[in-house]
Amino acid sequence: MTETFETRFKEIFGIKWPKLLESLGQTVYMLGWALLIGAVIGLFLALLLVLCRKGGLKQNRVIYAIVNFYVNIVRSMPFIITLVFVFPLTRLIVGKTYGSTAMLVPLVIYISPYMARLIENSLLEVSPGVIEAAQAMGATTFQIIIRFLLPEALSSIVLAMTTGTVGLLGATAMAGYVGGGGVGDLALTYGYQRYNFPLLILTIVILVIFVQLLQLLGNRISGRLRKHR
């Protein structure tokens, strides 16, 4: 039974079944780690933007200008350019410029400012009145962030991160092509370059299902957090 499945699979898609699994694993690996690290850095940048902006809790024009400029610069570069541009940095950190781990460097650099903007918007949605109430209670800036700002924005942040993750998935495909492996690499090198149309279709189907699942998950979590609003 399994043998016939594997043979049939090879016949139709031109690759071995484990190869697909391996590619999926690489995509999830790049996506997961880049998301985790990128979201943490993005959250940090977003907090800097929100706190230091004009009228913010810790208004600081210099910090705001620097972070804002950095975010804008990185966001205006296409990922494929960022990817090759940071090769020296990648080599410095990981020791090589190919493989899924090496690709995390450009992926994180690409996704964190994007996340920062998305999360910044979520944080700005929090009612200024709630923040003022917190200040009136004698809350410190740290307490305001932990007990008011983040909990109030969480549901919206989850949705923003879902959007960011879908964007990140597109970037992993490009990173894969340059040497990171993954589903994108599979589609391009095995599907496109070998004129293997069925495999190309299969990868598209997989990616579509992937995005659907991500969005569904994001909506679910966000909805649960928003339940009593």
Binding site: G129, E132, A136, M137, G138, A139, P151, L225, H228
Partner: peptide, 21 residues
């Protein structure tokens, strides 16, 4: 100042409560 604020309550027109809590 933060300590003093705990001795001063404040009530708002738009309530400013955590609606989801």
């Amino acid at each position: 100042l933060l300590t003093l604020r705990r001795k001063i309550g404040m009530v708002f027109q738009q309530f400013n409560l955590l609606e989801g809590k």
